[in-house]
């Protein structure tokens, strides 16, 4: 465990908690893509099935459980508890266009053709594109609440830190996982446009809005 990885994990946790807090505090999930949140819940549940087969560390087990529980609670908030505030008219990204190709790719390109390994690979590929419905929603409405942009920034920072973590691990441990690295880079690239807007607008105290 290196410092980039740790801060990356904490940034990821922060993102998840910011989102839960925003929904709970405002009693509203407006501006949040339920589809992205559903995909993240699917990512965690398919990736962390090794909770039942492999023990790595108390930290690892704890974080996995927290991620799964928080993502499921988020989905519950959006689709059940605060359903009336869910902006489904703007959340129109076709999820099957992500899940089906990603599922196919996981079957074709993986480390090992076993159920757990294919599900892990599926979750890695799916995570890399799971934010697309959220970004699509923002591009459709042309704006995002400031708290939502903080959420996205923390999530993007987590991805960027994981890349630094892989560079570190490659040099100092000789470790690399090509599937995770390629998918992670794709995922980080998707945030670049958002990072630019975040730095030029949100950090200057303005609301994140796109030019019409």
């Amino acid at each position: 465990m290196n410092v980039f990885r740790l801060i990356g994990d904490l940034s990821h946790l922060l993102a998840i908690l910011i989102l839960l807090w925003k929904i709970w505090k405002t009693r509203s999930c407006s501006g949040i893509s339920g589809k992205s949140q559903f995909l993240f819940a699917l990512v965690f549940t398919t990736r962390y099935l090794d909770l039942f087969t492999n023990f790595i560390s108390p930290y690892n087990t704890f974080m996995k459980i927290v991620y799964i529980v928080c993502s499921c609670v988020t989905v519950y908030f959006i689709y059940v508890k605060f359903k009336a505030t869910y902006d489904s008219n703007h959340d129109t990204f076709r999820v099957e266009f992500l899940v089906v190709p990603v599922g196919g790719l996981a079957f074709l390109v993986n480390h090992d053709f076993t159920p757990l390994e294919i599900l892990w690979t599926f979750s890695i590929y799916l995570e890399s594109v799971a934010i697309l419905p959220q970004l699509f929603m923002i591009s459709k409405t042309g704006e995002a609440e400031t708290i939502t942009s903080h959420y996205l920034f923390a999530l993007g920072a987590y991805r960027a830190l994981y890349i630094v973590n892989w560079v570190y691990r490659y040099y100092f441990e000789g470790f690399f996982d090509l599937i995770a690295i390629v998918a992670g880079c794709v995922q980080t690239i998707l945030y670049c446009d958002f990072f630019y807007l975040y730095i030029t607008k949100v950090l200057q105290g303005k609301k994140l809005s796109l030019p019409a």
Binding site: R5, N54, N60, E117
Partner: peptide
Amino acid sequence: DEETQAKDEL
């Protein structure tokens, strides 16, 4: 022959 390693990353 590639061995599937334990996934310590989240």
